[in-house]
């Protein structure tokens, strides 16, 4: 394989990794929010639309995670650099934003909004995931 085709292959795989990771984040957050909304309803019966969101996001999250792990492993095998000082700093900043998101998600509960603790936990994790993903997208943007 020529170096040009190796580079093109690496670039493609890198895009697959980014896309799969994004899809996993969106699907996982949607899944948690759907489950949280259902917990908050405290009803045994799921509304069809909510069940559909829950099921579809679950079905998307699992393969997206598998593809992301596979793409990262193959990128490393191909000799691509997947982590460097910028990605470490980006990850650190995005984690700080995720913490802020998780704390912000608690704000309603300071104002007498009540819900079951399982729903609160799911909304908190979903808020952290969404904040982390949004921060990562923002920090990784190119000019």
């Amino acid at each position: 394989m020529s170096s040009t085709s190796i580079k093109a292959s690496r670039a493609r795989r890198s895009r697959v990794f980014d896309g799969a990771l994004f899809a996993w984040g969106v699907a996982a957050a949607a899944n948690l929010i759907a489950a949280g909304v259902n917990d908050a309803r405290q009803s045994d019966v799921w509304p069809h639309w909510l069940e559909l969101i829950y099921l579809l996001s679950f079905l998307l999250a699992i393969p997206a995670l598998v593809v992301a792990v596979w793409a990262k492993a193959t990128l490393k095998r191909m000799g691509a650099v997947v982590e460097d000082e910028r990605t470490v700093i980006t990850n650190r900043h995005a984690s700080a934003v995720a913490l802020g998101g998780a704390l912000a998600a608690q704000a309603p509960y300071f104002f007498d909004v009540t819900t079951v603790s399982s729903a609160q936990a799911k909304f908190t994790v979903a808020a952290a995931l969404v904040s982390y993903g949004a921060a990562r997208l923002w920090l990784n943007r190119e000019a």
Binding site: V81, V82, D84, E85, I89, E142, A143
Partner: peptide, 20 residues
């Protein structure tokens, strides 16, 4: 250049543009 210094292409881009 990224390959020469062992970083990602995006890192070179963000250094060039002054973001990083």
């Amino acid at each position: 250049l990224a390959d020469l210094v062992g970083v990602t292409r995006k890192t070179i881009n963000t250094v060039e543009t002054g973001k990083f």
